[in-house]
Design a protein around this nucleic acid. Structure first.
Lengths: 117, 117
DNA sequence: TTGACATACATAAGAATCTTATGTATAATG
DNA sequence: CATTATACATAAGATTCTTATGTATGTCAA
């Protein structure tokens, strides 16, 4: 992981759900896709992803099915209506949270003009 | 905590360092200040903050001194040059990380116009 | 003056989620 | 035929949060 691993906590499942809102995908594919989209910033390892997928499935936010493609058996995941709903609220939560952290990190800098928003 | 506690991981020490770049502060004061600035979104509890302060001190990013004020003994923390330096890089790291997560969560939405930035 | 509450420090047990390591198996590639 | 990539999985360990608990002092109202 290019970034302090702690920052990642809680965001993996949100990003996984995001990818699954677009298409059904299998685990290994999710890792490669996140790597690609983040320009190799998020180098998720399998030991991190698979437990997250299993937990999301237990929570019925995603479901799975095995499919053979490209001569390989792959476990595809599909987002459920519950997962879609939770994703939307988690996305909002992330936006609010990240906005608040950024605000605090910027606030009250000496010599900086503060304009109302 | 109003938000999924996992999102907080890794951000507490950055926000603490931020407050200490402004003024020396004591622990209890940091909790109240974060609560106030975040509009009660970040309700840090003492069990979370004190270990973070102790670790930052062990890492020599902050130093401490006891002072009596308002009839009470308070342990004040002061950011060191090392802490200031690390804060600046962590702030940048946070901005990059948060920007990347937000980008991924927004990306490729169906029916959405994508404009170059 | 006494009991409740806020202030102020601290630590310990437990939960969640990551890293690193390990294991199994198959396909592709040189 | 050996190495690498693909593809699944789990376990041990680290970190950092929550919740609970403990100690002590100051303030304020009944």
């Amino acid at each position: 992981m290019a970034y302090d691993g702690q920052l990642l906590k809680g965001t993996v499942s949100i990003m996984v759900l995001k990818l699954l809102t677009e298409n059904d995908r299998y685990g290994y594919q999710i890792i490669r896709e996140l790597e690609k989209r983040s320009e190799s910033v998020f180098l998720l390892n399998e030991g991190a992803l698979y437990p997250v997928l299993h937990k999301l499935e237990t929570d019925e936010q995603i479901s799975s099915y095995w499919e053979e493609s490209g001569g390989r058996k792959r476990k595809y995941y599909h987002i459920t209506p519950k997962g879609t709903e939770l994703f939307e609220s988690k996305r909002q939560e992330w936006a609010d949270f990240a906005g608040m952290v950024s605000k605090i990190l910027k606030e009250f800098r000496r010599g900086q003009l503060c304009t109302s928003t």
